[in-house]
Design a protein around this nucleic acid. Structure first.
Length: 223
DNA sequence: GCGACAG
DNA sequence: ATCTTGTCGC
């Protein structure tokens, strides 16, 4: 697959992304978090998928999948590198979440289909993109105050929100993945905070994906 | 042509 | 993303 074909595929996918939202009438009871990492110098792709109860934000399940890496990282084409492993982890879940937070951008992408949107389309579930760095678009006037927000704009269109989730921390880039509106995406991320820079679903997926201390402790307490 | 560029 | 300990600041 050459980049021209992948770009064409993205344009096709982008036309199917929905920004319509039903989460307000059908609040999620289970929220998932997804994250991807690499091992063995990038030869192996590792995806983690976690499930949290809402609103308690209690971790109830986690799955990790490892598959051979198929593609290098190319800005703008991240989803093609990560979705196979994400799908593998997704298929191991005992049940699908009602909403999924994906590490990376949603529609705040050059062709409006970042990994959160692409994966949301693949499994047909509401998704939100939670990214730690800007990919495209611009914003102004984000104050240093915690809670500060600024719209992420590109060519006169709002792609999402830039949100300073915590004091003295770099802002998060929140956008529609699929079947979620921009405002709702920000609101749901805000409802899943527990004092850290990242929302709980993302933070847990991160911990599981990299075997961190907090997660190791959780494992011990639950066996 | 030059700079930017998720994970 | 990943390689990696201590350390500066609130």
């Amino acid at each position: 697959m050459d980049l021209a074909s992948l770009r064409a595929k993205q344009l096709e996918l982008a036309s199917s992304v929905s920004r319509a939202d039903r989460l307000d009438v059908d609040p999620p009871r289970l929220i998932g978090g997804a994250d991807v990492g690499f091992e063995q110098g990038g030869e192996v792709t590792r995806a983690a998928m976690v499930l949290l109860k809402y609103p308690s934000l209690e971790l109830v399940e986690y799955r990790v999948a490892r598959i051979a890496t198929t593609m290098p990282y190319i800005p703008g084409f991240l989803s093609f590198r990560e979705y196979p492993a994400l799908l593998a982890a997704w298929e191991q879940l005992s049940q699908p979440p009602d909403l999924l937070f994906v590490d990376g951008h949603g529609i705040s992408h050059p062709r409006r289909v970042g990994v959160a949107s692409h994966f949301g389309l693949l499994v047909d579930v509401p998704t939100i993109g939670v990214a730690k760095k800007r990919l495209c678009g611009q914003y102004e006037g984000l104050s240093d105050a915690p809670g500060a927000t600024a719209p992420l704009m590109d060519k006169g269109e709002q792609l999402g929100w830039v949100w300073r989730s915590k004091k003295r921390c770099n802002p998060l880039f929140i956008s529609t993945g699929h079947r979620v509106s921009a405002d709702s995406a920000l609101a749901w991320v805000q409802r899943c905070m527990a004092g850290y820079r990242l929302p709980e679903p993302t933070r847990w997926a991160d911990a599981v994906a990299s075997g961190r201390l907090a997660f190791t402790r959780w494992q011990e307490n639950n066996r």
